[in-house]
Amino acid sequence: MLHTTGNYLTNKNTGNQVKMTELFFELLNYKFFSNALLASFFTSINCGIIGTYIVSRRLVFISGGITHASFGGIGIGYFFGFNPIISAVIFAVLSALGIEFLAKKADVREDSLIGIFWSFGMALGIIFIFLTPGYAPNLMGYLFGSLLTVTSFDISLMTALTIIVAGFFLLFYKVILFIAFDQEYAKTHKAPVQFITYILIGLVAVTIVLSIKIAGIILVISLLTIPQTIANLFTKNFKYIIYLSVIIAFFGAFSGLILSYSLNIPSGASIIMSLVCAFIIAKLFSILVTYIKISKSVLLLNKKI
């Protein structure tokens, strides 16, 4: 067992002798830190899976729209005095289904609809927050992410979502993949295309809102796209992109968490910084690999001649 003393921790900035690993084990004994770690873990799984669906189906823009629309729910939560995450989940799911439904039935172009929902949600959120008497606590946390203020309630929501998302993908993996790849063909096989698409866009909405605590409204889209983009550099297989994305997302969230704690900056920003760094390194690495492959085959060609 490790003993923790407050003194020891406050020394961290001055005492260089405190090693990173020790700092980590020290931190583990704090509730806020273990909560943050658990939140990173479950969010990585949720975003790894859902993000792969988003990137493969090119749903990044609609995801951005849903993210910002959910701010309306946060404003409503503040105004009526209940947990903003709950109202944001409801608001985001309704926006997602609304965009999907209206794009199909109302003969309005999908990207225009996304623009409308995007700004409508933001506007509603701003109005309600300004109407709420007093100042809005934690508002910055919702905008930029605050991994260190994750509560046990947040974690139980994330865990439930992980069970649902992972379970859904395990059970229906084949159908999800085929519908995502070619909706029309899936329809000719009488697959429940509409039903599955609506459920998935709903899960996208819930995943986004439950990840807001980690990365913030403005930055959460990164957790759903950067890990997948990195993974896609190394594999073109849907399943492997999911696995790799989960690992990369967790790496990003974890290093972002350490950075956020030690520099006292919003976690959303620090997570994205580490993910972008990882992306640049991975891209350079893949360029190098391609370069080596090309020069090898050129060498072989020259030998043959």
């Binding site: 493969s56 084949k174 790849f181 063909y185």
Partner: peptide, 30 residues
């Protein structure tokens, strides 16, 4: 059914074998 092939997203991460197996969708259930 063999649709016109310009209808699909070629960057979708799916392998040849998986595409062929998707032709068994309705035979196999969900």
């Amino acid at each position: 059914y063999l649709p016109q092939i310009n209808q699909i997203d070629l960057r979708f991460p799916i392998s040849v074998t998986d595409v062929v197996l998707s032709g068994l969708m309705s035979k196999e259930g969900l």
